[in-house]
Amino acid sequence: METETALSAPLTIGFTYTRSLGPVLSQFMTALAERRILGSRGSDGRVHAPPAEYDPVTYAPLTELVEVSTVGTVQTWTWMNRPLDGQPLGRPFAWALILLDGADTPMLHAVDAGSPDRVRTGMRVRARWVAEPAGHIRDIECFEPDGGCPAARATSTSSEPVTMIETPIQLRYRHTTSAEESRYLRGLATGRLLGQRCPACGKVYIPPRGACPVDGVPTTDEVELPDQGTVTTFCIVNTPFAGQRITPPYVAAYVLLDGADIAIQHLILGCPAGEVRMGMRVRAVWRPREEWGTTPENIDHFRPSGEPDAAFESYAHHL
């Protein structure tokens, strides 16, 4: 096989964690919405801010919450010269452990200090709040050097208890395929279906797996497969969901291409959903050639080929 560079592509994953808060963090987040910071009193009398739900020494649940100051002292720091996505500030800033007045253990946050020579251990800083705090740790936008003026007053209006928080997550990757997968994807770009045969057991995998799951050896022998096969099993999708591209009901099926030993999952269109059955013979319907890329989406769906159904025995070992 000629050496070709493996295909890779950017992969961005985004989702939002929605988390329920226990009694301690619920009070803490509710207080943040009022521009106040609470700590919890540990079994040894120390105040942890932000609050610990369980004592770090005895592991006992902690229930006594006390208000601490929004002003504190930097205990240690580092300089973030190129802030990463999602961090509190988009311009260079200091990360610091900050011991708030009235607390005995420090909290981690950002300090908007401008430059590293304006940060030092022992410096006094105060919380800067976002315009509309809503009950999230990000209500504290960051800390800033304390000018000595009195702390801004907390919002007096008591808000509704905060019981849930949402945290959006976005992660970026460079997804790299194996040499076998790259061959398969490049084959698709020219309208060919390329599987590979395990040199040990002779089974044909499409897409090629990189390693045979039976023998644990790389699959090397290339096998071109036709774009027709047999429905081994299927389901009728009746439920709408976010991002759905076809109006239900429609059929998602496993299609065993002729000569393959593993089925691929695809859509069966071109007949009423109720007519799809195990053993039905189907053929690929390709998108227009000018839309092809190195992607399995080149095959839009499969449709009934009109041939007689395959005998159960012909696919019984592939269910």
Binding site: R19, T76, T78, G86, W95, L108
Partner: peptide, 25 residues
């Protein structure tokens, strides 16, 4: 993503910065 999901992870403190805070201490 391995940090406390309520109080720390939403700030995205990175592993190198956290180690630096420890080193300075």
């Amino acid at each position: 993503m391995q940090l406390d999901p309520y109080l720390l992870a939403p700030l995205w403190p990175d592993s190198v910065s956290i180690a630096a805070l420890q080193a300075r201490l």
